[in-house]
Design a protein around this nucleic acid. Structure first.
Lengths: 184, 184
DNA sequence: GTCTATAGGTGGATAGAC
DNA sequence: GTCTATCCACCTATAGAC
């Protein structure tokens, strides 16, 4: 049951934000009462934190096959952007991108887990970028970490605006260009 | 009084989002009652719409001096990014970037004005980009409009993540790199 | 684990006195 | 224009029966 609750809550946050849904919404979707939900997640703040922890774990797990794949750095970046595209294709925003907008209103534990998500993403990207530049597949100046933070920011921003413009192709165009600009 | 209400509401949306504040917050900040606010803005949806309209007008007005300035395209882009940086330096997110995240929960009239804001921005940027490429100050492939939407998306995303990482320098680094990549 | 019932608070919004 | 007073819907959260 916990997972089913998290599934619905995740969807709600990705489309409406943490301040844009209530226990009543989850209850209605699952056909149970609000009280039942409080048995599994006493406070909304806890539910929110668990949501980020699970999302982060799933996201990092999705990076594993990319790491172990045969492709070079450009291909790894394309597959990374593909994860975002898949989320967007379901008319959802990245959970953490959504929460980043609401950052100031979130409970401290959620803020901490949110920073962790982005740090892990940037760390992974920085590794791919550094290795790619070393073997001559990518070309860029400055610290890989700076480019990594640019990529995360830009992909999150592109998702957000693509959603409000109702077209996912817009995201693809931007993602492709970001990666093409890094080609050696 | 209308402007004072809009000032406070604007600040609240930029920091907490449209679903993250109430009339009570504005009332407390201005030292008046909620009922007074409803005299000027009967519905929150109307207040929200007026907020976007005013913000858009102010934003476009800020582009005028850039248009009339002596600088070339790279300088114009730097000054454009400077507008975002100024907002961020006050620990605020772009009003419309914030609302883009909450897009699905916004009343229709707000959604429409929001799209207009971004369209105007991309249109202006596309003009600068096209002209800059024509005279050899900038170099990029494909339609100027595609690069324009990349810039808007990336700058909005960078603002959002810089805010949740509590450092504005992060934004500057990203903005500088985005513009440098367009140099001829 | 899930329910009914309810507490205690806050949301946007209105009526009517001043 | 601003106030007091109030409405009703909704919020998160809890108590206690089943």
């Amino acid at each position: 049951m916990q997972d089913r609750i998290l599934d619905v809550a995740e969807h709600l946050v990705q489309t409406r934000g943490f301040n844009g849904f209530s226990y009543a919404d989850i209850a209605a979707s699952l056909g149970v009462t609000k009280a039942s939900l409080h048995y599994h997640f006493p406070a909304k703040a806890q539910l929110g934190r668990d949501l980020i922890v699970r999302y982060t774990a799933n996201f990092l797990a999705a990076l594993k096959p990319i790491d172990e794949g045969a492709g070079g750095a450009p291909e790894k970046l394309r597959r990374y952007a593909g994860i975002y595209a898949d989320v967007l294709s379901k008319d959802r925003m990245c959970l953490c991108g959504m929460l980043a907008a609401e950052y100031a209103t979130l409970p401290k534990p959620m803020q901490k887990e949110l920073r962790h998500f982005f740090d892990e993403n940037e760390g992974w990207l920085a590794g791919v970028l550094q290795q790619g530049r070393r073997v001559g597949e990518l070309a860029f100046s400055g610290p890989p970490r700076d480019v990594a933070s640019l990529l995360v920011s830009s992909l999150e921003g592109a998702m957000m605006l693509a959603r409000s413009h109702g077209n996912a192709k817009r995201f693809r165009t931007i993602a492709d260009r970001l990666i093409a600009d890094l080609a050696a």
